[in-house]
């Protein structure tokens, strides 16, 4: 089962981490990322500390590091630019393996890479241990505006419906000899996207009518769920607390 909350970033489980309420985990992840970002880039050891900290959470949640590493690749396109920094940065320069690298550029690249990766890993840890539905519920409890939540809920539901629609339209085009590899046929794809937009818009109207018919007045009804216990906050906040200790030590030693 679990079809109700299957998304590719979620790893089914029943560990301590999985059982923590979503809002607690969201706050813990957010604070941890803040600590990471606030750490001076020269405090190299502190970043190792963060990684160990996350590894401890993965161990507690029984997430295989390889599973995590594959999903962390999502970061790759965003850090490509960082690789260029050592070459394009300002003087002074130093020689390494026959390359002339900028000192400031290399530090800058390290900064982006380390903080970016840790941020992605923290978010992935949150996603891996929290079903999408609970994330929304957690955001609701954290008083995120209702409109934002409604939009997120609808996106969650309709992303697949619209993807299915796009797939059927593409099949219908291909069945009539369309081969989007050729540039001169790109027009059909573009028009396809246009009509997909119209269709999604129309669907939006129909969904809205159906919601009105069931008494929707603009706010999602809150369904009662068990309240969060203080001890759960303490458990989850241990993570940003240790992270804060690392960040503060990092600031004082550099």
């Amino acid at each position: 089962m679990g079809a109700g909350h299957s998304h590719p970033l979620y790893l089914e489980g029943s560990s301590v981490v999985h059982r923590l309420p979503a809002e607690v985990k969201i706050v813990a992840a957010f604070l941890t990322v803040l600590c990471v970002v606030a750490t001076p880039r020269e405090a190299f050891w502190a970043f190792g500390g963060y990684l160990l900290l996350l590894a401890a959470v993965w161990a507690a949640a029984r997430i295989p590091p390889g599973w995590m590493a594959r999903r962390a690749l999502i970061e790759a396109p965003f850090v490509v630019l960082a690789v260029l920094l050592p070459f394009t940065g300002p003087d002074p320069r130093f020689e390494w393996a026959g390359l002339s690298l900028s000192h400031a550029g290399t530090l800058g690249a390290w900064n982006i890479l380390a903080k970016g990766t840790l941020g992605v890993l923290t978010s992935l840890t949150l996603a891996a241990t929290t079903p999408m539905r609970d994330l929304l519920l957690g955001l609701q409890r954290l008083r995120v505006p209702a409109l934002v939540l409604t939009i997120a809920t609808l996106m969650l539901r309709y992303a697949d419906v619209i993807a299915g629609e796009a797939r059927r339209m593409r099949l219908a085009r291909i069945a009539r000899g369309h081969d989007p590899r050729f540039l001169w046929q790109a027009g059909a794809t573009a028009r396809g996207i246009g009509s997909l937009f119209i269709r999604s818009y129309e669907r939006g109207e129909r969904v809205h009518l159906a919601m009105l018919s069931r008494g929707w007045t603009g706010t999602m009804p809150t369904t009662g769920a068990p309240a969060t216990v203080r001890s759960q906050w303490l458990v989850a906040l241990a993570l940003p607390l240790v992270a804060a200790a690392l960040a503060v030590t990092g600031m004082m030693t550099t």
Binding site: R133, L154, R157, Y158, V161, R203, R206, L209, A210
Partner: peptide, 12 residues
Amino acid sequence: FQDPDDQLFMPT
């Protein structure tokens, strides 16, 4: 409504 996908919009 005719299309259940218009009516069913919640995650579960």
